[in-house]
Design a protein around this nucleic acid. Sequence first.
DNA 1: GCACAAAACGAACGTTCGTGCTATTATAAA
DNA 2: TTTATAATAGCACGAACGTTCGTTTTGTGC
Lengths: 195, 195
Amino acid sequence: MRAAVDLASVEGLGGLTIGRLADELKMSKSGLFAHFGSKEELQLASIEMARQMFTEHVIIPSLSSPEGMPRLWELCNRWLSHIEDRVFRGGCFFTAASFEFDSRPGPVRDRIAQVMETWLKMLSGAARRAQKAGHMQRSIDPDQFALEIDSLAIGAYWARELFGPKKTMGNTRSSIQRHLMSAATPACPKLRPIR
Amino acid sequence: MRAAVDLASVEGLGGLTIGRLADELKMSKSGLFAHFGSKEELQLASIEMARQMFTEHVIIPSLSSPEGMPRLWELCNRWLSHIEDRVFRGGCFFTAASFEFDSRPGPVRDRIAQVMETWLKMLSGAARRAQKAGHMQRSIDPDQFALEIDSLAIGAYWARELFGPKKTMGNTRSSIQRHLMSAATPACPKLRPIR
DNA sequence: GCACAAAACGAACGTTCGTGCTATTATAAA
DNA sequence: TTTATAATAGCACGAACGTTCGTTTTGTGC
């Protein structure tokens, strides 16, 4: 599954081909195929694996940060890091998959949308708790705010892949930090740079 | 070419297949193929067509707005509109193509990156002129600023395609407008909502 | 009406795709 | 050691892919 996720993150979920994956693993096509029964199942399994990896690298470690703005900041930071660290060989698995499948109805598209919705809810939930903790202005719509910082990260990834990593990611960290701070109250604790 | 762009915007530039396009146009594969000579040429021609359409729908009309912040705002607005209006059947041609080809070296990828760079330069150039006109704070880095508003639009498109158009685009308009206004000086003229 | 060029066509090529079969081999329980 | 079960391999299939070929249709200027 690790190989599948790597391949899919480079060639796209559609380009994740049973033959190529079998070659990579030095297996026969049919031997590999038997584990899934269909290409769609392979795709869904890859999504599941990628989701697990994302949870493990980004979400779980962030939960040890204190609730409120610090945890929101930590979530953003760890997401950017997981792109920089190339946890997926080809970049950001889910962003690429989203754009690839957004107009191809079916279980694969639905699952991707579901995972991304959960992620957005994670962000907006953190924002909402930041409001409850008095770290964030109550006039802000948490859902829209979550989408905004998510967009900044997606855009950074987009620019990085197209134009090279020059200073893109570092600049984006400060972009997002600025965005968080512009929404913060005086009671909000300092946001420490994680890297 | 219109049909090719439509097909590519739905199935992706890779899924733009000579056979399917021929079917759609009720032509023979070979008859269609003869016009291009290779699939890559077809892809490049599609990019060119999409670029022309984008220029026509977004850039040209914006040039009649006064230089500075108003024109920058108009560029953003028209980009959002051209997504809402589904100028490309499958959504935003270039955003999808960017993510599809970002890790597939070759002339197609290069051309996409080139077009997107030109577009970003258009935005940052407008921002720079807004600074010269005294509409925008000079402390702002125009390149980073351009990437930020581009990111917001990309993110809006991403959410729209995945979760449905509910209120996404409208909210994004105000997100971007807020972002512009937070960078504005007192001398900046009012930004009228275009739609 | 004819000649000539451009355009479209149908058939075939070699690959690769996903997907079924039927063997063969490893593994673990009896 | 035998036996049941899971994993892998081998082979073949129909379809679709990009591409090439020779032929036929279409349109234009004389």
